[in-house]
């Protein structure tokens, strides 16, 4: 553990401290505006009634589930290829947040599915792929915490994230294929390709809010990881000094 590894993270922490007030405030603002738009301003759907409002948290959560996994894969690639000291920490800090979004997408999808489909769960292609994605997140988190040596866990998780990333399109494709083979009698699409602007705006504002929330939380968590690494390095130095 030589100190030059932390020179770069030190600069990152200072940068993060400058970004955080802005990203945090904007996240609160966007989420509050999104909440107001989705609960009060947007109209009830002519088919789905007020249950359509669940979309304003469900769809952004599902988008974030995919986005965060992409971030983890990109960070893992730069950790393995360029040995960037921060990339590991970004992946590690993002995984629980992504898992949270994925769980949220599943749970709100289930709450939406009950009135629309009549059951809490259908083995629909989208729901099933998101469920698999949730397990990919859990595996990533479990692996990165499975070693006594933290950096070994981070690097193992990085390899797993890349293998997972290659497999995500294959899984998605195969689940789509499988679901067209076993199409349930009448499945109503939750979100069609055409969406009225009065519903699109709340959705977009909410999605921006989710993204800013992720950026803020991720910066805070990376800061924690940098501090934890410093703490480990310092206590190791203390042990060596005695």
């Amino acid at each position: 553990m030589n100190m030059h590894r932390f020179a770069n993270p030190g600069r990152f922490v200072r940068l993060a401290e400058r970004i955080l007030p802005w990203s945090g405030a904007l996240a609160v603002l966007a989420l509050a505006a999104g909440l107001y738009l989705s609960l009060f301003v947007s109209p009830a759907d002519y088919q789905q009634g007020d249950s359509v409002r669940i979309m304003y948290v469900h769809v952004p959560a599902a988008w974030m589930a995919l986005f965060v996994y992409t971030v983890i894969a990109a960070a893992s690639a730069s950790a393995l290829i360029w040995r960037h000291p921060l990339a590991d920490l970004v992946a590690r800090a993002s995984a629980p947040v992504g898992a949270g979004f994925t769980f949220l997408a599943l749970a709100t999808g289930s709450l939406w599915g009950k009135p629309m489909w009549g059951t809490w769960w259908v083995w629909d292609a989208r729901l099933t792929s998101v469920l698999v994605l949730f397990f990919l997140y859990l595996g990533h988190m479990a692996l990165s915490n499975a070693f006594d040596d933290q950096s070994r866990g981070n690097r193992a998780a990085a390899v797993l994230a890349l293998v997972g990333f290659v497999n995500v399109p294959i899984i998605k494709f195969s689940v789509d294929w499988w679901s067209t083979l076993h199409q349930p009698a009448s499945v109503m699409r939750l979100d069609g390709p055409t969406i009225h602007p009065s519903m699109l705006w709340p959705l977009l504002v909410m999605a921006v809010g989710f993204k800013l929330y992720y950026v803020s939380i991720m910066l805070l968590r990376v800061k924690s990881e940098v501090m934890a690494a410093r703490l480990r390095a310092r206590s190791m130095a203390a042990v060596e000094a005695t």
């Binding site: 397990f135 692996l143 293998v163 997972g164 899984i171 195969s174 689940v175």
Partner: peptide, 8 residues
């Protein structure tokens, strides 16, 4: 780690 990747 492995079972989700076995699904396809």
């Amino acid at each position: 780690l492995v079972l989700p990747l076995y699904i396809p």
